[in-house]
Amino acid sequence: MSLNSPTGFFSTKITDALNWARKFSIFQYPFVTACCGMEYMSTAASHYDVDRFGAGFPRFSPRQSDVLFVVGTINHKMAPVLKSVYDQMCEPKWVVAFGVCTCTGGFYDNYSTVQGIDTIIPVDIYIPGCPPRPENVLDGLMKLQDKIQKGEQSRTLYDPNAKTGRPAELQKYTITQHIKNIES
């Protein structure tokens, strides 16, 4: 596809054009629960400026947004709320796990914390870090754009036994496992 075509028009598949439009008009829903929110704000503000990627317009209604940014620790009391927010979003929709707490639970391996939001909703992009640097977030955003352009969406949840639905780097290393390793 070239905009400099000598004939003055170009041809493409309709889905490619749609996906191209979608990836540069990301309407995000920031589900901000914890300290990662500060880093999210600095990414969104003018210095790093997510608007360069067409993602500068957060919607605070899930019904008007197509990317769910889960920013910060999700605990078991909050989990049903997150699920219902996700369920209210219209297709096509994508989910970004922002920060290591949303990816795996992070160092909160305890009674209250969800051990990765991919146990509840399917996650497309994992941005680990505590908190991730804005450059890291922008990298994740561009990877999400690639995914949108290809028309891909994650549909699988994390299964700890089958070890599916989560990158190998983020497979959970639990305290229980750690203690077993020390004892053996």
Partner: peptide, 11 residues
């Protein structure tokens, strides 16, 4: 138990 989980939803 420190590894006991009682999630409302999820595994």
């Amino acid at each position: 138990p420190f590894d006991k989980r009682q999630p409302l939803i999820g595994p």
